[in-house]
Amino acid sequence: MSLQFILDGLINGSMIGLGAIGVTLTYAILRFSNFAHGDLMAWGAYATLALVSGIAALAGAAAPIGALSFGWPMIVAALGGMALTGLLALALDWLLFARLRDRGQAIIIVMASFGASMALRSLLEFLFTSSPVYYSRAIQMAMPVGLGIRVTPDQIALLVVTLALVLGMHLFMTRSQTGREMRAYSQNPALARVVGIDVARIVRATWLIGAALACAAGIMVGILVQIRPLMGLDMLLPMFAAAILGGIGSIPGAVLAGLIIGLSEAATVQLIGAEWRAAVAFAILMAVLFIRPMGLFGVAER
């Protein structure tokens, strides 16, 4: 039996995990399930594509870095794409969610996010059509790394980037004042106001971070698979499963659960059959929630 599924699962799992960080933060801090999160991912991927093309048009084609399929324009475009996705999320909040939040009904905000999701997706299809596009058409050679596993340079690079982003997020949440304030606000919004935390600032930080990480996940999907307007929708359920499985509000939980889901999906494809892929992730989710309703790293409601 080939163990290749372990690597595939890890890669897919890190994309799910990166996306799930935004889902779990939005849920813990803004207190609603943002179904438009997957579309932020897709918009991020397309924004980055537009920037890469723009840079290529202005500066000419750049050589790839080492054995990777992309060069420095991709890195610049990725940072720009993350910023633009953050701005898109802020705009959505200003246009839609902030107005509904003031009226206080969570279910209405969730429904609004469904609407936003459909609008964002249709707009992408309108702008870029629904046929898939790629950052690069270069074919990468996968290198054998033992145990029958083969890995491409892009995959290694993106695993390292994921690790760095997750570590960075962890340090941000535990060491920075804004991170502490975000955790405090998620635990007790009323007390957060009493101790002087500016809620508007926390809301902005949550959108910016969640959207930037969604964009990073979208770029990863784009580099390793392809860019399509529906790419976010396909990732939505695994991302929610990871956020819930990891425990709402927990960033390490979301990442670990993303890896668990990625691995179990890949194992299912390998061992049972591709048609069971989605089902197994949810079976695991439900089994864990029966035993530990607050998720792996969650804390019981007080």
Binding site: Q177, R180, R183, A184, Q187, N188, L191, G196, I197
Partner: peptide, 25 residues
Amino acid sequence: AFVPQTENIFPLLTVQENLAVAGGI
């Protein structure tokens, strides 16, 4: 400064973090 009657600390922050969060201003 106000100390509410109940839920007047952040239970999942450490003692030091509770003080640091309030010291943000």
